[in-house]
């Protein structure tokens, strides 16, 4: 069983985001970088699939700059076997170009399953995995919270939550791309022997520029700004009947939500 995990390095979700003074992007100086939260669930599921089969390989595939190797090593410390870094130094990628370069790399490795997080917690675009699936013409299920390999190892059964607590169950042929939500398994801790072993695991480096083959981003970032500061809340006092009437009035006239 050969499994890839598409891993993105993102700012820690507790980071206070600051915008550069010229509004051209996010100021990265004090950012603490982590594995994208949902990609960490994907790593855990990949390791569990490999353990269930007993043999195979989990490969971490990352499009990013050299700094991202730190997060890749963390996934290797959790138990993944090797990594492929597609170095994007000097380039600005959008979801489309990210999908293009990943779709160039994945077929060469003949993966059975490609796992990704359901979205990246930085830009929240939710497009790269779908883009890769479209370019490769592979089935893709988004988001999933449970994966089970079939007895003949030719398909997987996946569970997808839909609104209202309903679950959809799919049987999907391989190869496929599956996008992981927070599922039933918490990502494991990197063990200390795992950390020691991770430094000897190979990370192959490719150049994104070589894989783009003339493709250019479809999206251009024009301007960045922070959301406006939240206004202080309003507390209504008085008899319940009065307060209710006042609340409905405010929701309708001031907040304009009903």
């Amino acid at each position: 069983m050969k499994i890839a995990v598409l891993l993105k390095q993102t700012p820690d979700t507790e980071t206070k985001i600051k915008i550069k003074s010229d509004a051209s992007g996010v100021d990265e100086t004090d950012i603490k970088w982590i594995i994208n939260t949902y990609d960490e669930y994907a790593v855990e599921e990949a390791l569990r699939l490999k353990e269930a089969v007993g043999t195979g390989e989990v490969v971490i595939v990352t499009a990013g700059i050299k700094r991202a190797v730190e997060s890749m090593r963390q996934a290797l410390a959790m138990g993944a076997d090797r990594g492929i870094l597609i170095d994007t130094e000097g380039l600005t990628l959008d979801s489309y170009t990210a999908a293009v370069i990943l779709a160039k790399v994945l077929p060469n490795e003949k993966f059975d399953i490609v796992l990704a997080g359901k979205q990246a917690v930085d830009d929240d675009c939710v497009q790269v995995a779908h883009g890769v699936a479209t370019l490769l013409d592979w089935p893709c299920v988004w988001p999933i919270e449970h994966i089970e390999l079939s007895g003949d190892k030719k398909s997987v059964m996946v569970v997808r939550p839909v609104s209202g607590g309903t679950k959809e169950v799919f049987e999907v042929g391989l190869p496929t791309i599956l996008c992981c939500d927070k599922g039933e398994h918490d990502p494991r801790y990197a063990s200390l022997p795992g950390i020691m072993k991770a430094k000897t695991k190979p990370i192959q480096e490719l150049k994104a520029a070589d894989l783009l083959a003339g493709e250019t981003p479809k999206v251009k970032w024009v301007n960045f700004s922070l959301p406006p500061d939240r206004q202080a809340g309003k507390i209504l006092k008085g008899e319940p009947e009065q307060v209710c009437a006042e609340l409905v009035k405010l929701l309708r006239e001031e907040a304009k939500v009903i």
Binding site: E70, R73, Q74, A77, Y189, A190, S191, L192, I195, M196, A198, K199
Partner: peptide, 14 residues
């Protein structure tokens, strides 16, 4: 080293 820092992160997380 990178590993020493990773150990600190792992231990802090724990």
């Amino acid at each position: 080293t990178e590993e020493e820092i990773q150990v600190q992160h792992a231990a802090r997380d724990f």
